[in-house]
Amino acid sequence: MRQEPFVVPGKLVVPYRYFVGRLASKALIALRDDKKVMGVRCPTCNLTYMPPRSTCGRCFSKLEELVEVGDKGTVLTYTVVYHKEPVHPMEPPFVYGLIKLDGADTALPHFIGEVEPEKVSIGMKVQAVFKDKREGNILDIKYFKPQ
């Protein structure tokens, strides 16, 4: 006699916290306190990483030189989210973009706002909009809006 499979709903609940480390702390404190967007420069490879990291993957140098990459950049690519999911940070439709800040060589994933999703385009120039109450994380930038 076949029976219905016995399936038990459950969940996994564990509290975590991530330490961002010395270098990223400095960068995010600058964002929180002074609305400065910081990357880190590898002098060997002559590349500026944003988000900052403390080792260059290409040459394994220790990276310590934080540099301001500015609050303006270019949309490298983007996608529009139309469906609703509990994990989504906001009501659809909304736009995720990869943004290369002017002073950086790498792309930062973030939201694109204050624009109709249909009007977003690759190569569009955008500018960071900061939160008023900043806490020291990358969401202290609310989103990027067209320049």
């Binding site: 399936v7 459950g10 996994l12 609940v13 975590y16 961002v20 020291g136 994380n137």
Partner: peptide, 16 residues
């Protein structure tokens, strides 16, 4: 040093 709280709560359906 900054620390980000990341509470994890994931739903599962375990088949016995």
């Amino acid at each position: 040093f900054l620390v980000m709280p990341i509470p994890l709560e994931l739903p599962f359906q375990w088949a016995a």
